[in-house]
Simulated scan of single mutants.
Amino acid sequence: MNVLDAEGLHTFYGKSHILHAVSLCVREGEIVALLGRNGAGKTTTLRSLMGLTQASQGHVRILGKTTTAWPPYRIAALGVGYVPEGRCVFQNLTLEENLLVPLERSGPWTIERIYKLFPRLKERSTNKGRQLSGGEQEMLAIARALMLNPKLLLLDEPSQGLAPLLVQEVFDVIGTMRDEGISILLVEQNVRAAVEIADSACVLDDGRVVFQGAAKEFASDEARVRSLAGASVENWEDT
Results as ranks from 00 to 15, higher is better:
residue 215 A to I: 06
residue 12 F to I: 01
residue 138 E to Y: 10
residue 186 L to A: 14
residue 95 L to V: 15
residue 91 Q to A: 14
residue 173 V to W: 02
residue 157 E to N: 05
residue 175 G to S: 12
residue 55 A to D: 06
residue 141 A to V: 11
residue 146 L to H: 01
residue 41 G to T: 04
residue 225 V to Q: 02
residue 133 S to A: 07
residue 129 G to I: 05
residue 47 R to C: 07
residue 126 T to C: 01
residue 166 L to M: 13
residue 120 R to T: 10
residue 195 V to G: 07
residue 182 I to R: 04
residue 34 L to C: 13
residue 129 G to W: 00
residue 83 V to Q: 05
residue 104 E to H: 07
residue 181 G to S: 01
residue 165 L to W: 01
residue 35 L to D: 10
residue 108 P to F: 05
residue 44 T to L: 08
residue 206 D to I: 11
residue 29 G to C: 03
residue 202 C to A: 10
residue 22 V to W: 12
residue 122 K to M: 08
residue 10 H to D: 14
residue 106 S to A: 15
residue 23 S to M: 07
residue 76 A to M: 05
residue 64 G to K: 01
residue 52 L to Y: 13
residue 102 P to V: 02
residue 30 E to K: 13
residue 74 R to K: 06
residue 66 T to R: 05
residue 107 G to H: 13
residue 95 L to K: 12
residue 227 S to I: 07
residue 181 G to P: 02
residue 148 L to C: 08
residue 129 G to H: 06
residue 64 G to Q: 03
residue 47 R to V: 03
residue 106 S to T: 06
residue 203 V to M: 11
residue 41 G to Y: 07
residue 99 L to V: 01
residue 118 F to P: 04
residue 160 Q to H: 07
residue 84 P to L: 03
residue 119 P to T: 09
residue 204 L to D: 08
residue 140 L to Q: 15
residue 73 Y to V: 03
residue 186 L to E: 14
residue 92 N to C: 06
residue 58 G to L: 04
residue 120 R to G: 04
residue 171 F to P: 06
residue 160 Q to C: 06
residue 220 S to I: 08
residue 3 V to Y: 10
residue 153 L to Y: 07
residue 209 V to E: 00
residue 174 I to T: 01
residue 111 I to K: 09
residue 56 S to L: 09
residue 171 F to K: 07
residue 156 D to Q: 10
residue 43 T to N: 09
residue 149 N to Y: 08
residue 216 K to E: 15
residue 24 L to A: 08
residue 97 E to I: 02
residue 178 R to L: 04
residue 74 R to F: 00
residue 2 N to K: 07
residue 161 G to T: 11
residue 54 Q to M: 10
residue 134 G to A: 09
residue 187 V to E: 12
residue 95 L to R: 09
residue 152 L to Q: 06
residue 202 C to H: 02
residue 224 R to C: 12
residue 100 L to D: 13
residue 130 R to G: 01
residue 67 T to A: 03
residue 215 A to Q: 02
residue 211 F to A: 02
residue 62 I to A: 06
residue 62 I to L: 05
residue 90 F to H: 05
residue 227 S to T: 11
residue 48 S to F: 13
residue 114 I to M: 04
residue 168 Q to T: 04
residue 226 R to N: 15
residue 28 E to K: 14
residue 33 A to E: 13
residue 30 E to L: 03
residue 137 Q to G: 11
residue 139 M to Y: 13
residue 111 I to E: 09
residue 93 L to R: 15
residue 167 V to Y: 00
residue 19 L to Y: 08
residue 229 A to Y: 13
residue 191 V to R: 04
residue 193 A to P: 00
residue 161 G to K: 07
residue 115 Y to C: 04
residue 239 T to K: 15
residue 235 N to K: 15
residue 49 L to D: 14
residue 226 R to V: 14
residue 17 H to T: 06
residue 175 G to H: 08
residue 150 P to A: 14
residue 180 E to A: 07
residue 73 Y to P: 02
residue 33 A to T: 14
residue 138 E to N: 09
residue 24 L to E: 05
residue 129 G to L: 00
residue 142 I to W: 09
residue 132 L to P: 00
residue 41 G to P: 03
residue 91 Q to L: 12
residue 126 T to S: 15
residue 63 L to I: 04
residue 40 A to V: 05
residue 166 L to V: 13
residue 100 L to E: 14
residue 122 K to W: 11
residue 180 E to Q: 06
residue 210 V to N: 05
residue 130 R to M: 13
residue 103 L to R: 11
residue 163 A to W: 15
residue 126 T to F: 00
residue 187 V to N: 11
